[in-house]
């Protein structure tokens, strides 16, 4: 999921020009889980803006709980058909969702003016209702086979691929004494699994072109094509 956190209300209000008519759009998946843009927060945002003198022409969270704002066909249908009148009267859209959601609203409104209502902070695991933690950096070249599934690109402050730096103390990272060193976690996990030999091979420099941005993925039921500055890679999901 894409973790988001609302921007401070004063910052959001500062985006909106006097007299600007605003339509508020939330997301019923990730932003709902983050309490940054679900149904309740979206309705509350509409009220908070009105209280501060902003003209709000409508608000919605397209789709049922669990459906993402970034599903363009659905969001377009909701905004253009179900809320067609309010959307047509809006000068801009305040989006309570991640950056993908913001772009989805641009597409869904055929190029409407948008304001980000959230900061998109990371892709995370929903560990509990109150805890979202980052275990993947979306780097495009997964290296976690040799680290027991724990990503050094994400869990190591220096993104080291060949083992820990010299800074860990009592198992904690030198950068943040409250957070475990990623390589200590990797080592302890592999030791527990009896697979320490996975750490032996030298890991070559990473192909960072695979997380050059922007990237695209073209999918069909039996095949996917990943396109980045590293080139086009097509993989079939059948023999």
């Amino acid at each position: 999921m894409h973790a988001t956190i609302q921007k401070p209300i004063d910052e959001i209000v500062s985006f909106i020009r006097p007299g600007e008519k605003v339509f508020v759009v939330g997301c019923n998946n990730c932003a709902w889980k983050c309490h940054s843009g679900g149904e309740e927060e979206t309705a509350a945002m509409a009220d908070r803006l009105k209280k501060r003198g902003v003209e709000v022409v409508g608000h919605t969270v397209p789709g049922p709980q669990g459906m993402s704002l970034c599903k363009l066909d659905h969001t377009r249908k909701v905004l253009q058909e179900d809320y067609g009148e309010q959307v047509a009267g809006a000068d801009s859209f305040l989006v309570l969702g991640c950056g993908q959601g913001v772009h989805t609203v641009i597409d869904a409104t055929d190029g409407g003016m948008v304001h980000p209502g959230c900061d998109t902070i990371f892709g995370g695991e929903t560990v509990s209702e109150s805890d979202i933690e980052e275990y993947c950096s979306l780097c495009g070249e997964c290296v976690i086979e040799y680290t027991g599934g724990l990503c050094p690109m994400t869990l190591c402050s220096k993104q080291l691929l060949n083992g820990p730096c010299g800074g860990a103390e009592r198992g904690m990272c030198e950068v943040d004494k409250e957070r475990p060193c990623g390589w200590v976690l990797i080592y302890e996990r592999l030791q527990k699994l009896g697979r320490l030999e996975l750490l032996d091979p030298f890991q070559k420099p990473k192909n960072h072109a695979k997380w050059s941005r922007p990237r695209t993925l073209k999918v069909s039921p039996h095949e996917a094509t990943f396109c980045s500055q590293a080139g086009k890679v097509t993989v079939s999901n059948r023999d």
Binding site: N162, P164, G166, A168, E169, W183, V184, Y187, L199, F202
Partner: peptide
């Protein structure tokens, strides 16, 4: 290269030295 014989985890320090020598 540098080596820190004292950082955690101690058991990995010589493995890491070995890897640096191989590199």
């Amino acid at each position: 290269a540098a080596a820190n014989p004292f950082a955690d985890p101690f058991e990995i320090r010589v493995l890491r030295l070995a890897k640096k020598v191989s590199a």
